[in-house]
Each structure stands twice: as structure tokens, then as C-alpha cells.
Design a protein around this nucleic acid. Structure first.
Length: 602
RNA sequence: GGCCCGGUGGUGUAGUCUGGUUUAACACACCUCCCUGUCAAGGAGGAGAUCACGGGUUCAAAUCCCGUCCGGGUCGCCA
């Protein structure tokens, strides 16, 4: 090693020792005589002092130092003179008096400030172009170290519980359902392709048939779909599958795992040891989304009946057009200005709502019963009656001084927009406890959903999910009502994990596939391996797949998006600005694969 | 594919709505000099910007209009 100790590890116990340090110059403070530098390495920062009287040659070199130069320094650890200690630094009681210095490498001036404590003040594109420098910042170092700790914890935790980590191939067979596949052309079999796994779903089921009973893998999953703050092409999943289990076993395991992670690795966060279990229907009604932020209330309520009976035209027509009207009440927001409300209208409109109706209830109204027309401030004040406002207010739990938000329209878009408005208002009103991680299981998802585009049923989760036992009968009569043995883990408005109890009998699996429109031949061609395996003593099994990137984002204070917990992420258009990829390849490479590019000139 | 916000020295922003007073402002960083207890060091001076790109309107465009590209958010999409 070029160093005898890490900069960040020196304490007052080392007083008097001669040490050799190596690291990066974070900051230089040149007093003409004395020069101070903050020397940083991966453990922390220590102050080094250059004194022209003690070592003139060393001092002379120190005059040349600039930020991010890499240096090796030999010196003596000393207690700082009384009054010059720095309580901000763990090494603040001591400093190193330099006797020797060697410049290991110089550095150009960095394109942004590496020494900044917080992230997010620099343009993200620039950060990605210089990701190797961005990762040098304290915030990113902390994020990736946290990530390492969580993954290490998971491996230890599951290993102790008898789980076996098994790797599965990255080059697998394409199956066109679900997300878009990334394809890899085969050189040895020209004209054919591998796909990158969207998840190891079928492979882990095969491992259950193989008798491993408890499997896990920290698995990379690939989906060629549009990217978002919480979605990358490639994401990391803790893939878990178990045999001879039901939902309860999975929930217990995940509850213990997540509680332990929060307690051990993010003790400044808290969560409840028993995660609430809410049904899909419940949360869609109460929050308008299947991944609500449960850190605050402000539930949504259906007011379609009141709206339909009223003379408010926008509401009435929306409901007559097979829509709904839903509302929630923002406490003590009566005083929202025209400008603030306009902002919120724009907010919901960019999220698919036609508009937003507000009703402000004057705090001077003593009770809802004594409400007067003059207490109501609303763009629909002329067409809605006081009695209707009272009915709405009572149903949604408004008090005088509250601001009521109403959105009407198609069920899905109303829920989408209003649920996001609820979360926005939660933030604006300061209702969120930032230290809380509100974990919950969502259960009883529908098995199928109707796809308007293709006019056909498609699996809500995936086609290997078992229906609930009593629902097999609904297959022919009312498939939309069938419930799946499918569950999600959610926290703070994010989907953290998704899983299900699988179908383990060939006849049942074929029944689902055939319902989805697959012929026997198609089943055999695409899923032959799984169907065949189900015939050889496949045990009942199920699993779950928690997303690692989102979990880390949740546990750290430094992450605005999952891009902040991934070392080398891509932009929303799927580009890596550091490597400048995707990029063209050599014509010879294409020729070898038998691929010709149609010119795509615009 | 649709919609919204943004792109101004190395970095972060102001200026754009309401075109001309701008020789494009401020802070940080950078360079030079001074300075022996700083840690957001301090002081003096200096350099640094074809205002993302292309076109248009105008006597005049960072500013208005159209298009393109790029970044972010979002709807669709993501079993």
C-alpha cells in the first residue's frame, strides 16, 4: 500500500505517529506562510499542514497543489492547537504536519464541484458525462456503499434461512408477451436471436421443479420500455422463489427482511413491523392507485351519485358518459390563491385530467350544517347547491377551512390524476414524515384485465400467476372478476416488489394460456419447457421479486431517482452520455451476424 | 407516439412575459499577486459566453414565431 492509514481514520489516539497518507486534494487554503489542505480518501477527510519553517521543500510543492490532485504525504499526526479544532469533521481534533510530499497525479479543474455535500445542484447530463467524477462526490459514494450493504445483508439473511443463490442465463429465449425484449443476434445460428431476460421468471419456476425449494438471486432484468425516474432499461431485482408455500410465508419472510434492513442499515428511518395488507379494490377506491403513499391520509371518495343528481354540467356529463367523480379534502387550504390553484389545474392536466374543480369552505362557517352560500368559494358556486356541497363535504370529511378537489372523467384517468394530486398536496401541506417508510402489501389483484386496443384479455401480472382457488369457476362466466394470488409490496408511493403463487399443474397453466388465445402449438413453441416441467412432479410454489434500485432510493437521503443509486445509468432516451452509447458497430460485425441496416435517414 | 418544464462563461443562476438603457449581470470555480491557524479562509487584480442548433419576423432578437436536437417530468407503455 502507498499509505499507512486512511485520511478519514485518523483520531487523536494517533497523536505523535508518523503516517503516510494518499488521496485527493479536496481544498487548499494558502496563507502565504502556512498552507492547509483537506486531503480526502474513500474513508474521509483530514487536514494536512505545510509549514515553511519545518519543511521548506515540501511547502514549496504544496504551493502548486490544486483541487483533485492526487498526492502522497508523509507527516506527523498532531493535536490541533487549542481553539482551532473543527467539530464538523470526525478528524477535527488532529492534523498531519507534512514532512514529505509526492504528487502522484495532477488533475484538470473538474467540470463541477466535487466537494459539494449534496447532489442535485449540477445538471444531470453533465454529471452523467463525467460520471467517474460524479461518483467521487460524497453523496454518490454514500449511495453506492449503502447499496452494497443492503445487498450484502440480503445475501447473509437469506443464506442463513437456507436459501440458495443460483445464477441464471442472460441470453434466453424471447417471448413476445409482456414488456418489449432486448434482442441479441446469434452468430452461430444466423437469423435467430436470444433475448435478455425481463426477469428470470420461468427459470426460477424450473428451479422449483428441480427441488431447490428456496432460491434467490440478485438478478439483472432487462426491459426495452420507456425510462422514468424509477425505471431503467436494466434494473436489479432480488428474485425469490419458494416451494410448498402460500402467501403468508412470503409475507412473513419479506416483513422480517425489510424490517431488518431498515433497522440495521437505515436506523434513521422507521417502519412498522407488521405491514398492513390492503386489497387492490380497497386502495384503488381510497387512493386511486395500487401503490399509494400511506404516510398520510387525505383519502379519495367517490361522489358520482351526488354529482349526477346535481346541475353541475361538467360533472353530470362526465358521469353520464360512463365516468366517475372523485374528491378529497385538503385541510386548512381555504386560502389557496388563484395562482396556486391554476398551478394545480395544470398539474392534473399534464397527468391526463380534463380539469379540476375546487370548492373552498370558509373557516368562518361554524359547522357544515350551518353552511351558507357566502361560505363557498368555487368556480361552480353558481350551479352547485349549498346542500350538495354539504353532502360532498360530509362524505369526504371536510371541515370549514378546507379546500375540496374534484376530478371527473373516465375511471382510470380520474384515479391517475387525482391520486397524483393527493400526493402533491401531501408534499405541499407538509403531511409527510420523511423518516417513515410506510410499507404495505397489496393483495387480491385482478387476474386479467381487458385490453381496449387488442380487444382481448391480458394477464394483469403474468400468465403464470395462479387464480384464487374459488375463482376458477368464473373462467367461463366472468373472467374480469377473477382474483389472482398476486401481491405487491409498496412503500411511500412506490411499487417495491411484486410476486405471486404460481400455477403448478400443466392443465391449469394450459387453461389460462388457452383463455389468453394461445393455440396448443404456440404454447408448445413458446412455453414448452415450462409446461413439460409441470408434468414431472412440480411442487406448489410462489415467490416475489423486490426491486433493489427503488429500495435503495427509499433508504437514502441523497437520491432523487433510481439513477442516483445506479453507478452508470442511462438518460430518458436510453443514452449513456459517458460512453456515448448506443453507437454504430463495424460493418464486419454486422456481416458476421447476417444483419443489414435499412438506412433510416429522415 | 402525446403533453408540460427547461437549455445563457467551467458551474449555478438573473435577464426572456413587456425586443432597443446590455459593452449580457451576479455568486462560486479558474489565473496572477499579497497574506503563518484556516477549514464556505481573507484581500487586490485578471481572464473567460458565437445566449443549444437551424430558419423566420423586425431598422433592431438571449428576448417574438416555426422547426430540430438534448435533459427532466408526465400520459401511453412498463406481464
Amino acid at each position: 500500500m502507498l499509505k499507512s492509514i486512511s485520511c478519514g481514520a485518523i483520531r487523536k489516539d494517533h497523536n505523535g505517529q508518523i503516517v503516510t497518507l494518499a488521496g485527493w486534494v479536496q481544498k487548499r487554503r494558502d496563507h502565504g506562510g502556512l498552507i492547509f489542505i483537506d486531503l480526502r480518501d474513500s474513508v474521509g477527510v483530514a487536514q494536512v499542514v505545510f509549514n515553511p519553517q519545518k519543511s521548506p521543500e515540501t511547502h514549496k510543492i504544496a504551493e502548486l497543489l490544486r483541487s483533485e490532485w492526487v498526492v502522497k504525504i508523509k507527516g506527523t499526526v498532531s493535536l490541533r492547537p487549542a481553539g482551532t479544532e473543527n467539530s464538523e469533521l470526525p478528524t477535527g481534533l488532529i492534523e498531519v504536519i507534512a514532512n514529505e510530499i509526492e504528487v502522484l497525479n495532477e488533475s484538470k479543474t473538474a467540470p463541477f464541484d466535487i466537494s459539494q455535500k449534496t447532489q442535485g445542484q449540477v445538471d444531470e447530463l453533465l454529471r452523467l458525462e463525467y460520471r467517474f467524477l460524479d461518483l467521487r462526490t460524497q453523496a454518490m459514494q454514500e449511495n453506492l456503499i449503502l447499496r452494497h450493504k443492503v445487498v450484502q445483508f440480503i445475501r447473509d439473511f437469506l443464506g442463513e434461512k437456507g436459501f440458495v443463490e443460483i445464477e441464471t442465463p442472460i441470453l434466453i429465449k424471447s417471448s413476445p408477451e409482456g414488456a418489449r425484449d432486448f434482442l441479441v443476434p446469434s452468430r452461430l445460428q444466423p437469423g435467430t436471436f436470444y433475448a435478455l431476460p425481463q426477469s428470470p421468471q420461468q427459470l426460477k419456476q424450473l428451479l422449483m421443479v428441480s427441488g431447490f425449494e428456496k432460491y434467490f438471486q440478485i438478478a439483472r432484468c432487462f426491459r426495452d420500455e420507456d425510462l422514468r425516474g424509477d425505471r431503467q432499461f436494466e434494473h436489479t431485482q432480488l428474485d425469490i422463489e419458494m416451494s410448498f408455500v402460500d402467501e403468508t410465508d412470503i409475507f412473513d419472510l419479506i416483513e422480517t427482511l425489510y424490517s431488518s434492513i431498515v433497522n440495521d442499515i437505515a436506523p434513521n428511518r422507521h417502519t412498522n413491523p407488521n405491514f398492513p395488507r390492503l386489497t387492490y379494490d380497497e386502495v384503488m377506491a381510497d387512493y386511486g392507485t395500487d401503490k399509494p403513499d400511506l404516510r398520510f391520509g387525505m383519502k379519495l371518495f367517490d361522489i358520482s351519485d351526488i354529482a349526477l343528481a346535481s346541475n353541475v354540467k361538467v360533472l353530470k356529463t362526465a358521469i353520464e358518459d360512463q365516468g366517475i367523480a372523485k374528491a378529497f379534502s385538503a385541510p386548512n387550504s381555504f386560502g389557496y390563491s388563484r395562482k396556486q390553484i391554476d398551478e394545480l389545474i395544470a398539474f392534473v392536466q399534464t397527468r391526463g385530467a380534463a380539469g379540476l374543480i375546487t370548492i373552498a369552505i370558509d373557516p368562518d362557517a361554524d359547522t357544515l350544517e350551518s353552511l351558507q352560500k357566502s361560505h363557498i368559494k368555487s368556480p361552480i358556486a353558481n350551479s352547485i347547491t349549498v346542500d350538495e356541497v354539504i353532502q360532498i363535504a360530509k362524505r369526504i370529511g371536510s371541515k370549514p377551512g378546507d379546500l375540496i378537489f374534484i376530478i371527473s372523467g373516465k375511471r382510470a384517468s380520474t384515479n391517475t390524476a387525482l391520486s397524483q394530486l393527493r400526493e402533491e398536496m401531501g408534499k405541499r401541506l407538509g403531511l409527510i414524515d420523511e423518516s417513515e417508510i410506510a410499507l404495505a402489501f397489496i393483495t387480491d389483484f385482478p387476474l386479467f384485465e381487458w385490453d381496449e386496443d387488442t380487444q382481448s384479455w391480458s394477464p394483469a401480472h403474468h400468465m403464470f400467476t395462479s387464480p384464487q382457488d374459488e375463482d376458477w369457476a368464473l373462467f367461463s362466466s366472468d373472467p374480469g372478476k377473477m382474483k389472482a394470488r398476486h401481491y405487491d409490496l409498496i412503500a411511500n408511493g412506490m411499487e417495491l416488489a411484486s410476486g405471486s403463487i404460481r400455477i403448478h399443474k400443466r392443465e391449469n397453466q394450459e387453461a389460462v394460456m388457452s383463455f389468453l388465445g394461445y393455440s396448443k402449438d404456440q404454447m408448445q413453441e413458446r412455453f414448452g419447457q415450462l409446461l413439460s416441467a409441470l408434468e414431472y412432479g412440480a411442487p406448489p410454489h410462489g415467490g416475489i421479486a423486490p426491486g433493489i434500485d427503488r429500495l435503495i432510493t427509499l433508504l437514502t437521503d441523497n437520491a432523487e431517482s433510481i439513477r442516483d443509486v445506479i453507478a452508470f445509468p442511462k438518460t430518458q432516451t436510453g443514452i449513456d452520455p459517458l460512453f456515448e452509447t448506443p453507437s454504430q458497430v463495424m460493418p464486419s460485425q454486422l456481416a458476421e451476424l447476417g444483419i443489414r441496416i435499412h438506412s433510416n435517414e429522415k
